[in-house]
Amino acid sequence: MIVDLRLVAARVARGDDAAFRQIVEHTRAPMYRLAARLVGDLAEAEDALQEAFVDAYRALREGRYDGRSKVETWLYRIVTNACLDALRRRRDTPREASTEPRFDGLVSAEARVALRELDALLAALPPQERAALVLVAVEGLPAKEAAAALGCSEGAVEQRLVRARAALRARQIEKEAPHV
Protein backbone atom coordinates (compact mmCIF):
# COMPACT_ATOMS: atom_id res chain seq x y z
CA MET A 1 0.00 0.00 0.00
CA ILE A 2 1.43 3.34 -1.06
CA VAL A 3 1.17 6.06 1.57
CA ASP A 4 1.35 9.73 0.60
CA LEU A 5 3.33 11.01 3.55
CA ARG A 6 2.67 14.64 2.61
CA LEU A 7 -1.03 14.05 3.16
CA VAL A 8 -0.31 12.24 6.42
CA ALA A 9 1.94 15.12 7.54
CA ALA A 10 -0.88 17.57 6.77
CA ARG A 11 -3.22 15.51 8.95
CA VAL A 12 -0.72 15.69 11.83
CA ALA A 13 -0.42 19.45 11.33
CA ARG A 14 -4.23 19.71 11.63
CA GLY A 15 -4.17 17.89 14.97
CA ASP A 16 -4.48 14.20 14.03
CA ASP A 17 -1.79 12.95 16.41
CA ALA A 18 -2.47 9.31 15.58
CA ALA A 19 -1.47 9.93 11.96
CA PHE A 20 2.13 10.48 13.04
CA ARG A 21 2.34 6.75 13.75
CA GLN A 22 2.00 6.13 9.99
CA ILE A 23 4.99 8.37 9.33
CA VAL A 24 7.04 6.54 11.94
CA GLU A 25 6.01 3.11 10.68
CA HIS A 26 6.75 4.03 7.06
CA THR A 27 10.16 5.63 7.71
CA ARG A 28 11.54 3.96 10.83
CA ALA A 29 13.70 1.32 9.13
CA PRO A 30 15.58 3.62 6.72
CA MET A 31 15.91 6.36 9.34
CA TYR A 32 17.28 3.91 11.91
CA ARG A 33 19.71 2.54 9.34
CA LEU A 34 20.87 6.10 8.60
CA ALA A 35 21.26 6.91 12.30
CA ALA A 36 23.19 3.71 12.96
CA ARG A 37 25.55 4.41 10.09
CA LEU A 38 26.09 8.01 11.11
CA VAL A 39 26.79 7.44 14.80
CA GLY A 40 28.20 3.91 14.52
CA ASP A 41 26.50 2.72 17.69
CA LEU A 42 23.12 1.02 17.76
CA ALA A 43 22.01 2.30 21.17
CA GLU A 44 23.05 5.86 20.29
CA ALA A 45 21.29 5.51 16.95
CA GLU A 46 18.09 4.49 18.68
CA ASP A 47 18.33 7.50 21.02
CA ALA A 48 19.06 9.90 18.13
CA LEU A 49 16.17 8.49 16.12
CA GLN A 50 13.75 8.86 19.02
CA GLU A 51 14.91 12.46 19.49
CA ALA A 52 14.49 13.10 15.77
CA PHE A 53 10.95 11.71 15.68
CA VAL A 54 9.98 13.87 18.66
CA ASP A 55 11.44 16.91 16.87
CA ALA A 56 9.61 16.01 13.66
CA TYR A 57 6.30 15.61 15.49
CA ARG A 58 6.71 19.01 17.15
CA ALA A 59 7.67 20.62 13.86
CA LEU A 60 4.58 19.20 12.15
CA ARG A 61 2.28 20.34 14.96
CA GLU A 62 3.86 23.82 14.85
CA GLY A 63 3.49 24.06 11.06
CA ARG A 64 7.23 24.07 10.35
CA TYR A 65 7.03 21.51 7.52
CA ASP A 66 6.16 23.44 4.37
CA GLY A 67 5.74 20.48 2.02
CA ARG A 68 8.32 21.68 -0.51
CA SER A 69 10.45 18.55 -0.03
CA LYS A 70 9.39 14.95 0.40
CA VAL A 71 8.64 14.02 4.00
CA GLU A 72 11.41 11.42 3.81
CA THR A 73 13.97 14.05 2.75
CA TRP A 74 12.79 16.35 5.53
CA LEU A 75 13.15 13.49 8.02
CA TYR A 76 16.63 12.67 6.70
CA ARG A 77 17.62 16.20 7.64
CA ILE A 78 16.13 15.94 11.14
CA VAL A 79 17.73 12.53 11.75
CA THR A 80 21.08 13.72 10.36
CA ASN A 81 21.01 16.77 12.64
CA ALA A 82 20.17 14.60 15.66
CA CYS A 83 23.07 12.30 14.78
CA LEU A 84 25.50 15.19 14.27
CA ASP A 85 24.44 16.49 17.69
CA ALA A 86 25.09 13.02 19.16
CA LEU A 87 28.54 12.94 17.55
CA ARG A 88 29.33 16.38 18.99
CA ARG A 89 28.20 15.28 22.44
CA ARG A 90 30.34 12.16 22.11
CA ARG A 91 33.36 14.29 21.21
CA ASP A 92 32.72 16.67 24.11
CA THR A 93 32.08 14.07 26.82
CA PRO A 94 33.81 10.81 27.67
CA ARG A 95 32.02 7.87 26.11
CA GLU A 96 30.85 5.00 28.28
CA ALA A 97 31.17 1.45 27.08
CA SER A 98 28.55 0.76 24.46
CA THR A 99 25.54 -1.28 25.45
CA GLU A 100 23.64 -3.66 23.27
CA PRO A 101 20.71 -2.10 21.41
CA ARG A 102 17.23 -2.30 22.83
CA PHE A 103 15.92 -3.50 19.45
CA ASP A 104 16.25 -7.14 20.52
CA GLY A 105 16.30 -9.58 17.63
CA LEU A 106 16.22 -6.98 14.88
CA VAL A 107 19.97 -6.67 14.39
CA SER A 108 22.03 -9.68 13.42
CA ALA A 109 25.55 -10.35 14.64
CA GLU A 110 26.79 -9.78 11.08
CA ALA A 111 25.11 -6.38 11.01
CA ARG A 112 26.75 -5.44 14.30
CA VAL A 113 30.19 -6.42 12.99
CA ALA A 114 29.61 -4.57 9.71
CA LEU A 115 28.46 -1.49 11.62
CA ARG A 116 31.59 -1.56 13.80
CA GLU A 117 33.78 -1.87 10.70
CA LEU A 118 31.97 1.00 8.98
CA ASP A 119 32.22 3.14 12.10
CA ALA A 120 35.95 2.44 12.34
CA LEU A 121 36.39 3.60 8.75
CA LEU A 122 34.27 6.72 9.17
CA ALA A 123 35.37 7.68 12.69
CA ALA A 124 38.23 9.87 11.51
CA LEU A 125 36.02 11.94 9.22
CA PRO A 126 34.55 15.25 10.38
CA PRO A 127 30.80 14.86 11.07
CA GLN A 128 29.65 16.83 7.99
CA GLU A 129 31.85 14.75 5.66
CA ARG A 130 30.71 11.56 7.35
CA ALA A 131 27.08 12.58 6.93
CA ALA A 132 27.51 13.43 3.24
CA LEU A 133 29.29 10.15 2.54
CA VAL A 134 26.69 8.06 4.37
CA LEU A 135 23.74 9.82 2.72
CA VAL A 136 25.13 9.56 -0.81
CA ALA A 137 27.43 6.54 -0.93
CA VAL A 138 25.72 4.31 1.61
CA GLU A 139 22.05 5.38 1.60
CA GLY A 140 22.06 6.13 -2.14
CA LEU A 141 20.49 9.59 -1.99
CA PRO A 142 21.10 11.85 -4.98
CA ALA A 143 23.33 14.83 -4.17
CA LYS A 144 20.30 17.14 -4.38
CA GLU A 145 18.41 15.23 -1.67
CA ALA A 146 21.55 14.90 0.46
CA ALA A 147 22.01 18.66 0.18
CA ALA A 148 18.44 19.19 1.36
CA ALA A 149 19.01 16.77 4.23
CA LEU A 150 22.24 18.54 5.22
CA GLY A 151 20.93 22.07 4.69
CA CYS A 152 23.62 23.01 2.19
CA SER A 153 24.16 23.27 -1.56
CA GLU A 154 24.80 20.36 -3.90
CA GLY A 155 28.27 21.78 -4.47
CA ALA A 156 28.98 21.64 -0.75
CA VAL A 157 27.87 17.99 -0.68
CA GLU A 158 30.16 17.19 -3.62
CA GLN A 159 33.05 18.97 -1.90
CA ARG A 160 32.46 17.04 1.33
CA LEU A 161 32.37 13.78 -0.65
CA VAL A 162 35.67 14.56 -2.37
CA ARG A 163 37.34 15.35 0.98
CA ALA A 164 35.86 12.27 2.66
CA ARG A 165 36.92 9.92 -0.12
CA ALA A 166 40.42 11.44 -0.19
CA ALA A 167 40.74 10.99 3.58
CA LEU A 168 39.59 7.37 3.34
CA ARG A 169 42.03 6.67 0.48
CA ALA A 170 44.87 8.25 2.48
CA ARG A 171 43.94 6.15 5.49
CA GLN A 172 43.89 2.98 3.35
CA ILE A 173 47.30 3.81 1.83
CA GLU A 174 48.68 4.49 5.30
CA LYS A 175 47.27 1.19 6.55
CA GLU A 176 48.80 -0.75 3.64
CA ALA A 177 52.22 0.90 3.81
CA PRO A 178 54.96 -1.26 5.33
CA HIS A 179 55.90 -0.14 8.81
CA VAL A 180 59.56 0.47 9.29
Rank of each mutant, 00 (worst) to 15 (best):
M1F: 03
D4K: 00
D4H: 03
D4I: 02
L5D: 01
V8A: 00
V8L: 02
A10L: 05
A10W: 00
G15R: 02
D16L: 00
D17A: 10
D17E: 15
A19Q: 08
F20T: 01
R21D: 07
Q22K: 09
I23M: 02
I23H: 06
V24R: 07
E25Q: 12
H26N: 13
R28T: 08
A29K: 11
P30V: 06
R33F: 07
R33S: 13
L34G: 02
D41K: 10
D41S: 12
L42M: 11
L42Y: 07
L42Q: 14
A45L: 01
A48R: 01
A48N: 04
L49C: 05
Q50L: 04
E51G: 09
E51D: 14
A52N: 08
A52G: 11
A52Y: 02
V54H: 08
Y57F: 15
R58F: 03
A59F: 11
L60T: 13
L60M: 11
L60G: 06
R61P: 04
E62P: 04
R64T: 07
R64E: 12
G67R: 04
G67Y: 03
G67M: 05
R68N: 09
R68L: 09
S69A: 15
K70W: 08
V71Y: 03
Y76M: 05
Y76K: 10
Y76T: 04
I78Q: 07
I78F: 04
V79C: 06
V79G: 02
V79Q: 03
T80I: 04
N81S: 15
C83Y: 00
D85N: 13
D85K: 15
A86E: 13
A86D: 11
R88E: 14
R89I: 08
R91A: 14
R91Y: 09
P94F: 10
P94A: 12
A97S: 15
S98H: 09
T99S: 14
P101R: 06
R102I: 12
D104Q: 11
V107N: 03
A109P: 00
A114E: 14
A114H: 03
R116V: 05
A120Y: 01
A120I: 04
L121V: 10
A123D: 14
P126L: 10
P126F: 02
P126C: 04
P127Q: 07
Q128R: 09
E129H: 10
R130T: 00
A132K: 08
V134H: 00
A137Y: 09
E139M: 09
G140S: 08
G140R: 08
L141N: 01
L141M: 00
L141R: 12
P142R: 15
A146H: 00
A148H: 08
A148V: 05
A149Y: 03
L150C: 01
G151I: 01
S153Q: 05
G155Q: 07
A156F: 00
L161D: 06
V162G: 10
R163N: 13
R163Q: 09
R163M: 10
A164P: 05
R165H: 06
R165N: 03
A166T: 15
A167K: 14
A167D: 12
A167S: 14
A167I: 09
L168E: 10
L168T: 15
Q172M: 15
E174H: 11
E174K: 13
E174I: 09
E174Y: 07
E174S: 15
K175F: 11
K175L: 14
E176G: 05
E176Y: 03
A177F: 08
V180G: 15
